[in-house]
Amino acid sequence: MTEPETEVPPRRLSDIVNSLDTQQDLTIGTLVDAFGERAFGALMFVFAVPNIVPTPPGTSAVLGLPLVILTFQLMIGRQALWLPEAIRRRSIKASMVASFATRAVPVMARFEKILKPRLSLFVNSDPAERLIGIIAFLLAVVLFLPIPFLNILPAAAIACMALGLAERDGLAVLAGYAVAAGCAVLMMAISTALVAAARTFFNVLLGG
């Protein structure tokens, strides 16, 4: 009697990043291929995490554009990430890869200790993935806009959903939804305050 085959768990994302050669430049295509079928979640995390910490002006716009492209494809239901060959051939400097591996991978590894497949309703179906894509796409658009100090919450929400998508953890996805809701409330509050300030300004200006 043969023993049933045990399913081999997929490699951790942190292990994949650690296996990359940080001594030489890396093409985006190589990075996409390394993550394989989990490229959507992994690359969403890679581009979102640097926006959670204070960065030089303009960084969110540079990193936000790839997020817009990734999340749009997830939103429309693509099963495999597509990138133009010109983008796949673009190089990422070895220093940037090494910096990411040094700073972000330990954070990723800590999260991976508590991430596990669960609450599949929120991550293991085409509608669930499309919903993640829709919310992440809207957040990526906000992240791409040159709005100072409003990149942390959208980036944190995308990072949570990205890890949930990559590790099939519905709880992490729900955490991302909660952060996204907080981001929406904050933006509504800021918009309301700006409208009120504008009305007050014009009333004073016009003597109303």
Rank of each mutant, 00 (worst) to 15 (best):
Ser91Ala: 13
Leu174Arg: 07
Met187Tyr: 06
Ala196Trp: 06
Thr200Met: 11
Phe47Gln: 09
Ala157Thr: 01
Val105Gln: 07
Val173Tyr: 00
Ile69Thr: 12
Asn18Tyr: 06
Thr55Gly: 11
Leu70Met: 08
Val97Gln: 12
Gln23Arg: 14
Asn51Glu: 04
Leu205Trp: 15
Thr6Val: 14
Glu129Met: 14
Phe122Ser: 13
Leu150Glu: 12
Asp126Ile: 08
Leu65Cys: 05
Ala166Met: 05
Leu145Ser: 11
Met44His: 03
Leu13His: 01
Met44Gly: 11
Pro10Lys: 09
Val53Trp: 12
Phe202Arg: 05
Ser91Gly: 04
Leu206Lys: 08
Ile52Phe: 02
Gly133His: 10
Ile16Lys: 07
Met1Ser: 15
Asn203Met: 13
Ser95Trp: 04
Gln73Gly: 12
Ile152Gln: 13
Ile16Met: 02
Gly176Pro: 02
Leu194Lys: 12
Phe111Trp: 08
Leu153Ala: 13
Arg11Ala: 13
Asp169Cys: 12
Arg168Asp: 11
Thr6Arg: 14
Leu139Gly: 02
Leu65Phe: 15
Leu26Ile: 14
Gly29Trp: 05
Ile190Gly: 03
Val49Ala: 08
Val8Ala: 04
Leu206Phe: 03
Thr192Ser: 08
Ile52Met: 15
Gly182Thr: 02
Gly133Met: 10
Pro56Gln: 10
Lys93His: 11
Ser91Asn: 05
Leu139Glu: 02
Ile152Leu: 13
Ala48Ser: 15
Ser120Trp: 00
Ala80Tyr: 04
Val173Asn: 05
Val32Ser: 12
Pro9Ser: 04
Ala98Ser: 14
Ala128His: 00
Val195Leu: 10
Leu143Asp: 05
Cys160Pro: 00
Val62Ala: 11
Leu81Arg: 11
Ala80Val: 12
Ser19Tyr: 05
Ile28Phe: 00
Gln79His: 08
Ile134Thr: 07
Pro10Val: 10
Ala34Glu: 06
Arg78Thr: 02
Leu31Gly: 08
Ile28Ser: 03
Ala156Thr: 13
Gly58Ser: 11
Leu138Lys: 01
Gln24Lys: 15
Arg12His: 10
Leu165Gln: 07
Pro9Trp: 00
Ala101Gly: 12
Ser125Leu: 09
Ala157Gln: 06
Val53Met: 14
Trp82Asp: 11
Pro66Trp: 12
Lys116Met: 06
Ala196Met: 14
Pro127Ile: 14
Leu163Tyr: 01
Ile135Asn: 07
Trp82Ala: 11
Lys93Arg: 13
Leu63Glu: 02
Leu63Thr: 07
Glu7Val: 15
Leu81Trp: 04
Ala61Met: 15
Pro56Asp: 10
Trp82Gln: 11
Leu153Val: 05
Leu13Asn: 03
Ala184Thr: 10
Arg89Thr: 09
Asp126Gly: 01
Cys160Ser: 07
Phe100Leu: 10
Ile92Ala: 05
Met75Glu: 04
Ala136Ile: 01
Val185Phe: 07
Arg168His: 14
Val173Trp: 00
Phe202Asp: 03
Ala39Asn: 08
Phe47His: 10
Glu3Asp: 05
Ser14Glu: 06
Asn151Val: 06
Asn124Val: 00
Thr55Ser: 14
Arg199His: 11
Glu167Val: 03
Phe202Val: 13
Thr102Glu: 15
Ala61Thr: 15
Leu26Gln: 14
Asp126Leu: 10
Asn18Cys: 09
Gly207Trp: 01
Thr30Ser: 13
Ala181His: 00
Leu163Asp: 06
Leu81Ile: 12
Ala197His: 08
Gly170Pro: 02
Gly36Ser: 12
Gly36Glu: 09
Ala184Met: 09
